[in-house]
């Protein structure tokens, strides 16, 4: 029974990891930009959700669509100013994009510190548990995990079964080929960045219910997302999903048997192990 409980917890945790990682992956896939400000969007959204819920008593699940829309607009405003000018820089774009997103990360973290302070906060929501026989599940974790998986499922169907989604996949696999199909690649990039930011921010709203967060958490979350994407293979949607669930499971097991510190170190141990054994990423190795 313990095994089942750890398994379910791991899958639910993995669900939130999929959301964190796929939003990073989406932006990388279309723009070849590793967004170092990823974690700061997650944290900003988490702290904003805490602040708004504490003030107004709104359920974080109602704040979720607000955060999604606002962050989508913020992403759509930032992309033409910060990212699009890099797109015709050829090989320099990669390094420049790291510098630009690192700068953005710095600015966002400072704003978060200024507005909400440096304290760790967490949102007391659905604090009770559900008990099924010998299995006890945290309600918050179940709700958060299911919402995250639901959002990722919507993303999956949007990408694979709508014409705009297919245009986005096409533009990420070959921008030149996409232009030859009459696809406005510039517009696809704008949309992909805005959507990536909106998904990352949604993850922040969900995470604040199960994880204490402060402005300084931003970099850890960026690294967590990057570890998962590196494990699954940059630009590989299926590989990243598998990697996120595996990491969730591994952390759930390590947290129980070895303690919280071990669970925190685990992503990096796994990353180093995989880089030594399968440097091309898990999916291509399989």
């Amino acid at each position: 029974m313990l095994a089942v409980q750890l398994l379910i917890n791991g899958i639910l945790l993995g669900g939130t990891y999929v959301l964190i990682a796929q939003s990073l992956n989406l932006i990388f896939g279309v723009m070849r930009v590793v967004n170092l400000a990823h974690g700061s969007f997650i944290v900003m959204a988490g702290l904003f959700t805490f602040w708004l819920s504490a003030r107004t008593g709104l359920s974080p699940l109602i704040v979720l669509p607000i955060v999604f829309v606002v962050s989508f607009v913020v992403g759509a405003l930032l992309q033409p100013v910060l990212i699009e000018p890099l797109m015709n820089q050829g090989r320099r774009a990669e390094l420049l994009s790291l510098m630009v997103t690192f700068g953005l990360d710095y600015v966002l973290v400072q704003i978060a510190l200024h507005v909400w302070g440096a304290d760790y906060v967490s949102l007391p929501y659905l604090q009770s548990t559900w008990t099924f026989g010998a299995i006890t599940l945290s309600k918050a974790l179940v709700v958060v995990g299911l919402f995250a998986v639901g959002i990722v499922a919507l993303l999956y169907f949007g990408l694979n079964y709508t014409s705009f989604g297919k245009a986005l996949l096409a533009a990420s696999q070959s921008p030149v080929g996409a232009a030859c199909c009459g696809i406005n690649v510039r517009r696809v990039r704008l949309f992909a960045f805005a959507l990536g930011i909106a998904l990352a921010s949604s993850a922040g709203t969900l995470l604040i219910m199960i994880l204490p967060m402060a402005a300084e958490s931003a970099d850890n979350l960026t690294i967590l997302a990057f570890v998962i994407v590196a494990l699954g293979g940059l630009g590989e949607y299926a590989g990243v999903t598998i990697a996120a669930f595996l990491l969730g499971l591994a952390q759930s097991l390590a947290g129980y048997f070895l303690g919280g510190d071990a669970a925190n170190v685990l992503p990096f141990v796994i990353l180093i192990a995989v880089m030594l054994l399968w440097p091309q990423g898990l999916r291509r190795a399989a």
Binding site: K166, L169, Q173, S174, V176, G177, C180
Partner: peptide, 11 residues
């Protein structure tokens, strides 16, 4: 039909 074909390998 560009050089290198520029197809979308997964589609």
């Amino acid at each position: 039909v560009p050089s290198g074909r520029e197809l979308f390998p997964r589609l």
